[in-house]
Design a protein around this nucleic acid. Sequence first.
DNA 1: CTTGCCTCTCACATGAATGTCAGCTTTTAG
DNA 2: CTAAAAGCTGACATTCATGTGAGAGGCAAG
Lengths: 131, 131
Amino acid sequence: MRIGELAARTGVSVRSLRYYEEQGLLTSTRSAGGQRHYTDAEVERVAFIQHLYAAGLSSRTIVELLPCVDSPSHDNSDAAMERMAQERDRLSAHIEKLQHTRDALDALMAANQAHRDTPRANCSAMAASFV
Amino acid sequence: MRIGELAARTGVSVRSLRYYEEQGLLTSTRSAGGQRHYTDAEVERVAFIQHLYAAGLSSRTIVELLPCVDSPSHDNSDAAMERMAQERDRLSAHIEKLQHTRDALDALMAANQAHRDTPRANCSAMAASFV
DNA sequence: CTTGCCTCTCACATGAATGTCAGCTTTTAG
DNA sequence: CTAAAAGCTGACATTCATGTGAGAGGCAAG
């Protein structure tokens, strides 16, 4: 398929797909006229990339992990494994912080709700729960 | 305290603190000479702001929620409550996606580990778990 | 062949938060 | 009082993923 179709299937813009290739995240074969062609497998790969982006990994980091996905071997696995473990831990820490923040938002909402019933509730105190 | 001390206490750069003020997230009193002065309460407030930033809220969004924290009243609570509920839900969805991504990273690592033991394991298949 | 749609490259723009530099003023320590 | 340290404003730079537009070429249908 050509780039337009891949874009339509993945919901990622044509511009971004070309950017991914530029960053080494995606490869394509070229037609005689120079147009990019992709296989169905690339749809999955783009989804994969999107998930990692959503997890806060930069293209630079993703490109370090991809060799393991593409061709698992000892040479690249050593570096990639360490990187993955590192990113996994960062992700775990991030998730915990987000949960904490969500809890605080909940508390803030509850405090506001309380204020409606009892005008003397103090929302500001909630800010303390963030520290 | 002056801006340098607030920066030191919060770990946020002086530049950022001035930016927060510019965005309406933070206020300060000024000395006769024009220098910003803060109370201890601002330390908490900056931490609060940082948490919301980390949760992916933009300064524009944060500024919408702050009135509720500052002076809870019906006028602003209606809008702010809705905004908070909305952001809370967005945050929940994001957390779930991150957990999913973390699981996938774990699977990828496990597959690589398996490859070390049994060279025929296929890491690429793991990408499918993202879709 | 021609028309219309898709694609190509190159390059500049955007937004958000922050960095950095310059030139000047305020505050503090000795 | 004087010098060092810290602050002020204003403006331009940076990073990253993406948007956007220009100008040219590819490719399938009529």
